[in-house]
Amino acid sequence: MDLFSELEPANSLADMITNDKFQDTAFDAHLHEDGKGIVIHVPFGRLYYAPCFFDQATSDKFIDYFLACDGINSKEYDWQHDDALNDRPFTNIAWHQDSISMYGKTHKLPRISAWYGDSDRPYTYSGITLQPKPWTEELNWLRSQLAPICRRQFNSVLLNWYRSGEDYISWHTDAEKELGVNPLIASINFGESRRFLLRLKEDHDIKIELPLHHGSVLVMAGALQHHWQHSVPKQKKVKSNRINLTFRTIST
């Protein structure tokens, strides 16, 4: 069966498809065979979008797991203004705020990251090279949940922690050479809902917006990374944490 196979729409997602189109767009859409997600066909690629892939209890468990820090109530702590975040004793994930140099100045990235995966799979982006930490049991379990959708075993995952709506990521593609030709990117999200925007590089009027909720999954497939950019913009009204995991396959 194809990566994103077609099935009749289920009632729980029917409102997202009108006349075989996704919401108020011109993009063809149908229900994935798992009954949890919708497949959206866009120029040069396709998307799998499941706004509630994981249930509430599972999602709550994972947000607590990712933010656990010895001696700190992570849910109430003001992480956004913690200048010593890189020195905090996180329990489960080796979070780190990286910096980049631009025009002779060094700037902290507006999000916190961690890189996990196979030991021989480093990843370089924006001039930053990340050496992977070994898989945890929890990350392995999440990876296994993606296998029926993606038909593969990912060898790496990039974790991004958005501490509030002040954290963001600008327009970009995930098309680094390490990701190979037509990279498949699978995204899992826990915590606060954030806007996820995509636009066609050749025509910015062709775009789509998907809200990524607590427990949602988004998969980007086909040649999409070569033709589309995506971003998570600032949202000043968002005051709490969001954890995003993007599973990837790093080529040798």
Rank of each mutant, 00 (worst) to 15 (best):
S187F: 03
M16L: 15
G127Q: 04
Y123H: 08
E202Y: 07
E8T: 15
D55N: 09
Y77C: 09
G71M: 06
H213V: 05
L184T: 13
A57E: 11
H230Y: 01
C69D: 01
M16R: 15
P134C: 09
I72W: 01
R195F: 05
S193K: 15
H213E: 14
F27C: 10
P233C: 10
L210E: 00
I40F: 01
P51I: 02
P233N: 08
L200N: 03
P148Y: 03
Y116C: 10
F62T: 10
A221F: 02
W115C: 08
P183R: 05
V217W: 00
D205V: 08
S5T: 08
T18G: 12
R194I: 03
K133S: 14
E192M: 14
S59L: 04
R111W: 08
K177Q: 15
G215V: 07
N19F: 06
P132H: 02
A147P: 10
F44M: 11
G71R: 02
N241A: 15
G127L: 09
E138V: 15
H107E: 08
V232D: 02
S193R: 15
L109N: 02
A186G: 07
D2S: 12
S113T: 11
Q56V: 10
F54A: 05
D203L: 10
L210V: 06
A57L: 13
P43I: 09
N140I: 11
T124S: 15
D70H: 15
I38N: 00
V181A: 10
E178D: 07
L13A: 04
V217D: 08
K236M: 14
L7A: 14
V42P: 06
P211I: 07
E166M: 11
F54W: 01
V238W: 05
H227E: 00
P233Q: 04
A221L: 06
D24V: 12
D70G: 12
Y48F: 14
T246F: 03
R242D: 15
D2I: 14
M1W: 10
C52G: 13
H30G: 10
I100G: 10
H213P: 12
A57R: 07
L109C: 06
V157R: 05
F54Y: 11
T124I: 00
F62S: 04
A147F: 13
D167E: 04
K36M: 15
D83R: 06
D87E: 10
E176L: 07
F62R: 02
I185A: 02
R151Y: 03
F44I: 01
N19K: 13
R194E: 13
W141T: 13
Y65I: 08
L198K: 10
D70Q: 15
K207R: 13
Q56E: 11
L130A: 05
I17A: 03
I72Y: 02
I250P: 11
A94L: 09
P148D: 08
W141Y: 14
S12T: 12
T106W: 10
I188P: 05
G35V: 00
L3F: 09
N11H: 14
L198P: 04
I128T: 00
D118M: 09
I38L: 09
D28H: 13
M1S: 13
V217F: 03
D83T: 09
